[in-house]
Amino acid sequence: MDADQIKALINNALSLDELHVSFDGSQAKVIAVSDMFSDMSRVKKQQAVLAPLSAAIKDGSIHAVSVKTFTTEQWQRDKMFNLPI
């Protein structure tokens, strides 16, 4: 498993404006940007991003995932403080 494979899993499941993924071999860091997050609770946002990764988490390919979600407006305002991942 690598960052590109994680990115593909998430992109195939969700319609995102931007997706940034880093992966060190065990821990993935994900920044997901979409207006779909605007009406979701924090837990629902996390669940939406983690769902496509569940098989990789279950089989141990990914041991930990850090997720940050933003609407496009939030991302435009805050992105200078959130990169690099």
Rank of each mutant, 00 (worst) to 15 (best):
M1N: 01
D2W: 05
D4A: 12
D4R: 09
I6F: 02
I6T: 01
I6W: 02
I6D: 00
I6N: 00
A8F: 07
A8I: 06
A8M: 06
L9N: 04
L9R: 07
N11L: 13
N12K: 12
A13T: 06
A13E: 14
A13H: 11
A13V: 05
L14K: 03
L16H: 04
L16N: 03
L16P: 03
D17L: 09
D17N: 15
D17I: 08
E18S: 10
E18D: 13
H20S: 07
H20Q: 12
H20A: 05
V21D: 04
S22R: 05
S22N: 11
F23L: 02
F23Y: 14
D24H: 04
D24E: 02
G25N: 07
G25E: 05
G25H: 13
S26W: 14
S26H: 15
Q27Y: 15
A28T: 03
K29Y: 09
V30K: 03
V30S: 02
I31E: 03
A32L: 04
A32F: 03
V33N: 02
V33A: 02
V33Y: 03
D35L: 00
D35C: 02
D35G: 00
M36T: 07
F37W: 02
F37H: 03
F37I: 05
F37Q: 06
S38V: 09
M40L: 09
M40K: 12
M40R: 08
S41D: 12
S41Y: 09
S41N: 13
R42W: 09
R42C: 11
V43K: 10
V43Q: 12
K44I: 05
K44N: 14
K44G: 11
K45G: 14
K45D: 08
K45T: 11
Q46R: 14
A48C: 14
V49W: 01
L50H: 09
A51R: 14
A51T: 10
P52A: 03
P52N: 04
L53W: 06
L53V: 05
L53N: 01
L53K: 02
S54Q: 13
S54W: 07
A55M: 07
I57M: 15
I57E: 01
D59Y: 12
D59W: 10
D59G: 08
G60D: 03
S61Q: 15
S61M: 11
S61C: 09
I62N: 00
H63V: 08
A64C: 09
A64R: 12
V65D: 01
V65L: 03
V67N: 02
V67R: 02
T69A: 01
T69G: 00
F70W: 01
F70I: 05
T71W: 00
T71Q: 01
T72L: 09
E73D: 09
E73S: 08
E73A: 13
Q74M: 07
W75K: 02
R77V: 10
R77A: 13
D78A: 11
D78G: 07
D78V: 06
K79V: 08
M80S: 15
M80G: 15
F81Q: 13
N82E: 13
N82R: 12
N82L: 05
L83M: 04
L83Y: 01
L83A: 03
P84I: 07
P84V: 07
I85C: 09
I85R: 10
I85V: 14
